[in-house]
């Protein structure tokens, strides 16, 4: 016999189900209950940097949009600083909740373009948004990233993109710019399946 390690086990995940909006965005479930719903404003009013819109759809293995998905966004400010790890603009939370249109599955949100962030061993990472997806049928939240196609040099040196062995799959994480709007579809399965991370 040996001593017991006595670690606790992480609570197992369960699907957020079809009614995740009740808990996390009740206005979208069809009723108002909280004075302030959380995650409606990623940047706050004082954020510096380029204002952008991100739009797209989450698509399932049959090609249909996932209309009941909820996406959380976590990002650094335009200087590449995350709240809590350095000074950011007053009111900048860097976090938001995105709910697609129930009819079409199209999502859209506004934020500022993040700066390059210091990665492991002080290697810079190209500007990116961190995304977490939950929905009915998703048993444990899916983590991915969105990069920007107008950051070619930074993307080419990004330590995370470079971990993706099948180089063509790197494109699944790169949003396409059109003016100040970035288009980013997430494919859960099948042709062009988005790269998801085990963090």
């Amino acid at each position: 016999m040996v001593q017991a390690l006595n670690y606790l086990k992480e609570t197992a995940s369960q699907t957020a189900g079809p009614y995740v909006h009740i808990g996390l965005a009740p206005g979208d479930a069809g009723f108002d209950i909280y004075a302030r719903e959380l995650g409606r404003d990623i940047t706050g009013p004082n954020a510096l940097g380029k204002r952008i819109t991100v739009t797209g759809r989450v698509i399932d293995g049959t090609g249909a949009p996932v209309k009941d998905v909820l996406i959380e966004v976590w990002q650094a400010n335009a200087k590449g600083v995350y709240p809590g790890s350095g000074d950011v603009e007053d009111g900048f939370r860097g976090w938001g909740r995105v709910i697609p249109d129930f009819g079409t599955g199209a999502y859209s949100f506004e934020t500022v373009k993040p700066g390059a962030v210091q990665g492991r061993n002080d290697r810079p990472m190209a500007p990116h948004l961190n995304l977490w997806l939950v929905a009915r049928g998703i048993n444990i939240g899916l983590n991915t990233r969105m990069y920007f196609d107008d950051e070619e040099t930074a993307n080419a040196a990004d330590p995370v993109l470079n971990l993706i062995e099948q180089t063509h799959r790197r494109n699944t994480l790169i949003a396409r710019a059109e003016g100040n709007t970035y288009h980013f579809d997430i494919r859960l399965q099948g042709d062009g399946e988005t790269v998801f991370f085990d963090l």
Binding site: G61, G137, Q189, E193
Partner: peptide
């Protein structure tokens, strides 16, 4: 519901 919404490739 998990069948069409589960990634089929390995997580990175």
């Amino acid at each position: 519901s998990s069948v069409a919404r589960a990634p089929r490739l390995a997580l990175l």
